[in-house]
Design a protein around this nucleic acid. Structure first.
Lengths: 149, 149
DNA sequence: CTCGCATTGACAGGAACCTTACGTTCTTGG
DNA sequence: CCAAGAACGTAAGGTTCCTGTCAATGCGAG
């Protein structure tokens, strides 16, 4: 722990969570930088991905899909709606909820963003083998709590 | 992406950053839960670790060590000072800055917290080999930007 | 020595998230 | 069918982080 940050073998074993935090912060910075030209944050990009995969998802389900709260999801959607990238419609059978859809502009923005993000992430991972990448993802998925021991 | 969250092979490749985010969020929740009985958050714990390793570090350097801002670091230190775990002293040779030290109570709190955190993180990683853990850390360090390609 | 630039901790305001609570709607067991 | 409990989107307030700015201090080149 003599460098700029304490990303060091010893400290990793004392607070692994913080290493993950720093990885996330740096990746977020890199992705936000890459996406800024498209007017998107990484959180917005991720939400567009979910919406592309699940058209008509409700705000509550979107929140769950991105491990967030309904309030946060709704606020983020408001920003995307302001950009004309998503639209919210009354749910056809559930009077409590709304369905969210990508607009054409939203789909186009997403298609523009994908290669940008993929390229940046590929750069970050340069030098790691396919197997090492697979292992890293497996490890991360475990850390998300979605894959039991 | 049919589960509770979109922690899924396909989406990982479309937004790896978000997978890291979700790992961090879950780990933070787990650590905060484990540390709550000690009145610490994971961020506070991490700062105590830095202070134990670098007694007398300045607020600005602590902020850099945890990849944060001076303001955030100072606010976090205020909370720790309120608990009597750290103290800030005028720097002996630099009229702008202050040095931060652990108090005895701070050192004791840290010693109590270490095994708690280590145990929770060990549980999260159960089933991964030593080599797999090493690889995951190597990958994470790369993602922090502190280890070039 | 001087001066332009950089750094410091603190102030002010904002962003992005959270929790709590609400009225409305839905679900389900009796 | 009914009532208790759950879920919905939204409002309100709070927390934790950020950025921009400030006055004071430090650094280094000329």
């Amino acid at each position: 722990m003599r460098g700029e940050t304490w990303v060091d073998a010893d400290i990793d074993e004392l607070c692994l969570s913080f290493l993950v935090r720093q990885a996330w912060l740096n990746m977020r910075g890199a992705m936000d930088g890459a996406l800024s030209g498209l007017g998107l944050s990484v959180a917005q990009y991720a939400s567009l991905l979910v919406l592309a995969d699940q058209p008509g998802i409700t705000i509550a389900d979107l929140a769950r899909a991105v491990a967030s709260t309904r309030q946060s999801a709704n606020e983020l959607l408001a920003g995307l709606a302001d950009q004309g990238l998503v639209e919210r419609r009354r749910h056809p059978t559930d009077g409590r909820s709304q369905q969210v859809f990508l607009t054409d502009a939203g789909r186009e923005r997403l298609e523009e963003a994908r290669p940008v993000v993929r390229e940046r992430e590929r750069e970050l991972e340069a030098g790691f083998s396919q197997e090492e990448r697979r292992l890293a993802r497996q490890w991360l998925r475990r850390m998300t709590g979605d894959q039991p021991a």
